[in-house]
Nucleic acid binder design. Structure first.
Lengths: 219, 219
DNA sequence: ACAGTAACGGACGCTGCCGTCCGTTTAGCT
DNA sequence: AGCTAAACGGACGGCAGCGTCCGTTACTGT
């Protein structure tokens, strides 16, 4: 067997890989993405070299560590989309995603593309966003979501949600929950609603804008 | 003259102090509070030792650099308080403070007490908050602000606002403006409004709670 | 003009993180 | 059991930011 390609990891290597991923997930959730690589290695009980061998860059590690979170995020959106009441589905999506982000400091940053380019799950992100756009369209048609809502508003609220800090994870989740509720109040149609300032352009690819009434330069 | 205390700075020292403060304000606004002290010294055209002599700790420099911003913040609140229409005043306060924070990355962090203890202008902050609380009370009495609004909601939105990032300052301001408008929609009374989850406890000193209907432990 | 001292800033040593090298260990196969 | 190569991890050099020391510069008051 001279030409066996290392498509399969040795048992100890596979074991270490798991431990690294577990440690990374735990510490990313608690501290965010800024933790030193060595700290993750330490918690995983491996040397730095082992960590770097498996994941030469932090971006790779992050991508791998958050793939399932990303999938969870997508299935939340799918659930919302499956809801017979689009506004109800929309609310669920907002609430659950906010909670997801509140529980995991790192995931927020990863989702927001703290790593600006080439995040592997950019595709999933884009797919989720278009799904939400569809859900939003339906909720608008049902007359429950304000007509001037655009997808960038969602990004905006997600960014805003990521700004919420608190002493404990529990407190952060509680704050985020209230924030989500307030956000939904803002998105809800209401006789008292007044026109909004122009929407920011935050997500270049997708768009719910059919038309852009203002000629404003956007950044 | 053996016992002259250095209550007065030498002319060059005073000059340097100004340049340091200017540089600090500029770079804090653009980059936030995380910039290295040396960077500020460099931009001010002084050596590191000079900077450290004048401001032994970054906290002191930040305090001094943002004192006027803090005062601006307070006068915004005073203006709002002086408005005959409390809801209108409330809106102005939210909008202007959000803009202030959007224009200055550093100020947000300073205001949010990134430096957890002993920020010198904690007093001003507290005063502003109680003023807003008063304004909120009036706006509630006028039936325009939702009755379950609490001061912590304001902190919450300010934190959230600080989470808004963008490629350019202009884009950030635009996004923040829309965010403020959405926030006000959420705070506005509306026949369609539904009850909110329990308020987080974010600002220990002041409170608009007269009673706390939920027995929830708050973090 | 000069003395005296306030103020300056280059240079230093420290710490923490980074990414890599290389001698050692150990799983996997016969 | 023994061989081989995969995998490991301690150790290294490099870099960036920190806060301080101390020899030099230049205001200020006589």
């Amino acid at each position: 067997m001279t030409d066996r390609l290392p498509h399969t990891l040795r048992s100890d290597a596979r074991d270490n890989r798991e431990r690294i991923l577990d440690a990374a997930r735990a510490v990313f959730a608690a501290e965010g993405l800024t933790v030193p690589m060595r700290e993750i290695a330490r918690r995983a009980g491996v040397g730095p070299a082992t960590l770097y061998r498996r994941y030469p860059t932090k971006e790779m590690l992050v991508t791998e560590a958050f793939t399932d979170q990303m999938r969870a995020c997508q299935s939340i959106v799918d659930e919302g989309l499956a809801d017979p009441d689009p506004w109800h589905g929309f609310c669920l999506v907002i609430e659950k995603i906010c909670e997801l982000h509140a529980r995991d400091r790192g995931f927020t940053a990863a989702f927001m593309s703290t790593f600006p380019h080439a995040m592997d799950f950019a595709a999933i992100r884009a797919y989720s966003l278009t799904s939400v756009a569809e859900l939003a369209r339906r909720a608008k048609d049902a007359g429950r979501l304000r007509p001037d809502f655009v997808l960038d508003d969602l990004i905006l609220m997600l960014m805003a949600n990521s700004g919420i800090h608190a002493s404990s994870p529990a407190a952060r989740v509680a704050a985020s929950r209230r924030f989500a509720a307030l956000t939904l109040q803002a998105f809800h149609t209401s006789p008292a609603s007044s026109p909004l300032p122009p929407a920011p352009r935050l997500v270049p690819g997708v768009s719910t804008h059919r038309r852009n009434p203002t000629g404003e330069t956007d950044g």
